[in-house]
Design a protein around this nucleic acid. Structure first.
Length: 597
RNA sequence: GGUCCUGUAGUUCAAUGGAUAGAACAAGUGUUUCCUAAACACUAGAUCCGGGUUCGAUUCCCGGCGGGACUACCA
């Protein structure tokens, strides 16, 4: 039982016995005492003033006296206006720290056979171009949410739905066929996803030229877009693909394989992985048959031209296309099929889609459609919707070449980390392998932390220059603190100091130190809340807060020089505990922390 | 037009309805006989506007104003 709930019950008892009313537990607010006041925890007494029929000061005084008299963990109190500041006894803090220190999995709830299964879909790339900065946010959020939910006792299946078919990949294929001269990743030395992306850009360029040419001839823009030979040919290709045309299929498989090899490298460097990958080429037919079933039972309707629609006007939405007039499926059709397959494959209790907020409408519709089709889980799907990543100059636009490529960015971050380390002489005693490992941890840690510390719902600005900063609220700052703590612990070990647990008399600890223990006790709550709110940012900001507080303490005291043995022992235990929390917390963000740097 | 999201220091981010709205970066000033100076300390700076609910509102409600997304036979 944590301190908050202990205190809540104590205060409830106090109010009951003093004023004869049973307070609503929600009314009892326990919060950390602000630094400028004495005490550890604060009870807000305004809600009881009416029942007490006394001033806030008197009410606080009475409750404080009652608490101190009746419970040994309250060592003192003071009252300021409606705030009752309580001091918690040192013994309580020391015992708590000991318990936490002994618990190697502190804050983590492991899944057991009764745990629910959560499927988390993230990444979901198209196979026509490499991953960019937007995908990075998606991947990092997806991976981190999976880790956080695991830490909350869920069984988690991470999944990726690869959009490997459709008009977009036909565009790359067509351009490669027309202009590619049989170029391959081997012949060009390019990473496969980048090579395919190159042809996607070429298609776009040539297509635009055709549109322009048609418009010169006096054809309207809309008409030109629809009738340009390249787009007609791409559409033809999609049809040929759906009809299993061998040549088209072969080209498609070859180019997709290039892309997958490229993606694998990117995922590996980013440190994300999947338990199960679905391909739309394998799920879209399932969607088609589901849609046809919907037409039969009246959930959807066909128009004279053969296209199939869902009428959602009753739900306050528009009509939604589900199958084109030519019988090909659209995005929504595929998501219906994929959902069905997934629920056939796994006993899913909760389905989470990590997809950008530009698709809020899509998932609103998907939820309704699945419900209409009779899937009882349709209504309860979670769209974990995150905001866009923008650059200081504005939005990323592939046309204007302002897209930040994922591979380039990661390389740049690691390079910068390596250079900075070397400039500072940090890695002078390391082997080249060690230098690489640390540069990777720091460079990627910097990038990941920069992105994950922001509330996912908000759109964020990514400034490449600032993200490589290693000071302040950054990944490297946290990693650095961890490395320093580890360094102290190593030296203590070398000196033969035993800090496996407290022994001897309890030392007298400072207010700063009890505050640190208090922060430590928050960790499990932070994990729980981060899981409920789907917010890695809560974990990130908590860890930073802990590290910052610790750093201040760390510089005011000299741990190893401390004369008092029990105090030295206590400080080492506190340090080790905090290092453990930093490591666990950062691992929930998918960030590694080095032992030295 | 409709639906949804969002507005906090110069900038990037915080703040279950609670005390004097916190950090970081950028600017300025200090601190290395010391466990790692990728650090620490100090100085200056903000809730878009107007109502309402409340003992108390950055937070909740209503109305403006600003920014964004969606409202495709693209995925």
């Amino acid at each position: 039982m944590n301190l908050d709930s202990i205190l809540t019950n104590l205060v409830a008892d106090a109010v009951k016995s003093l004023y004869g009313i049973e307070p609503d537990l929600n009314q009892i607010q326990i919060q950390k005492t602000k630094k400028e006041f004495d005490g550890d925890l604060t009870v807000v007494t305004f809600p009881f003033v009416k029942a007490a029929r006394k001033s806030p000061e008197q009410t606080g005084q009475e409750i404080g006296e009652y608490l101190q008299k009746n419970n040994p963990i309250i060592s003192g109190f003071n009252v300021i206006k409606g705030f009752l500041n309580l001091s918690i006894s040192q013994n309580y803090w020391l015992e708590t720290l000991n318990e936490i220190h002994e618990n190697k999995k502190y804050g983590i709830t492991e899944a057991d056979e009764n745990s629910g299964l959560m499927m988390i879909e993230y990444s979901s790339p198209n196979t026509n171009k490499p991953l960019h900065l937007g995908h990075i946010r998606n991947n990092l959020l997806g991976h981190s949410i999976a880790e956080i939910q695991k830490a909350n006792g869920w069984k988690v299946v991470k999944t990726n739905i690869v959009n490997d078919r459709g008009i977009h990949i036909c565009k790359s294929m067509l351009a490669w066929k027309l202009y590619g001269n049989n170029e391959t990743p081997e012949s060009s030395g390019m990473k496969g996803d980048h090579l395919v992306g190159k042809y996607y850009v070429i298609f776009d360029k040539e297509y635009k030229a055709e549109i322009k040419g048609l418009m010169v001839k006096g054809i309207g823009e809309e008409e030109a877009k629809k009738t340009a030979p390249l787009i007609l040919e791409a559409q033809q290709m999609l049809l040929a693909w759906e009809q299993n045309d061998p040549e088209t299929r072969q080209l498609w498989e070859m180019m997709n394989d290039w892309v997958y090899a490229g993606f694998d490298k990117t995922y590996q460097q980013m440190g994300v992985s999947f338990d199960k990958i679905y391909y739309e080429s394998q799920t879209y037919l399932e969607g088609k048959s589901e849609v046809e079933r919907g037409v039969k039972n009246g959930a959807f309707y066909a128009r004279p031209d053969g296209s199939v629609w869902a009428d959602l006007t009753a739900e306050g939405l528009d009509e939604k296309l589900l199958l084109r007039a030519d019988g090909t499926s659209v995005y929504m059709t595929q998501d219906i099929g994929t959902a069905k397959l997934r629920y056939n494959d796994y006993p899913i209790n909760k389905m989470v889609y990590v997809v950008g907020n530009e698709q809020n409408y899509h998932f609103q519709v998907l939820s309704i459609l699945l419900d209409k089709l009779g899937f009882e889980w349709g209504k309860s799907l979670v769209h974990f919707s995150y905001g866009m990543v923008e650059l200081p100059e504005g939005k990323m636009k592939s046309r204007e070449g302002t897209v930040v490529d994922a591979d380039d960015l990661m390389t740049e971050m690691v390079d910068t980390a390596r250079e900075t380390s070397q400039e500072l002489g940090k890695l002078d005693n390391c082997t080249p392998e060690e230098i690489e490992t640390i540069a990777n941890m720091v460079g990627l840690g910097s990038l990941k932390y920069f992105i994950l510390k922001v509330d996912p719902r908000k759109s964020m600005t990514f400034n490449p220059k600032e993200s490589i900063d290693f000071n302040g609220n950054t990944g490297p700052f946290i990693q650095y603190t961890h490395a320093r703590i580890k360094s102290v612990l190593r030296k203590a070990n070398d000196q033969g100091i035993d800090f496996s647990k407290m022994s001897g008399e309890n030392p007298k600890i400072s207010e700063k130190e009890s505050y640190l223990i208090q922060l430590v006790t928050d960790f499990p709550n932070v994990i729980r809340q981060a899981g409920e709110e789907f917010s890695p940012a809560l974990v990130a900001n908590y860890v930073y807060d802990l590290v910052k507080e610790f750093n201040q303490f760390y510089h005011d005291f000299s741990i190893l020089k401390e004369e008092n043995e029990s105090l030295k022992q206590f400080r080492l235990i506190l340090s080790e505990t905090i290092a453990g929390i930093i490591k666990t917390g950062m691992s929930l963000l998918g960030i590694e922390v080095p032992e030295r740097m």
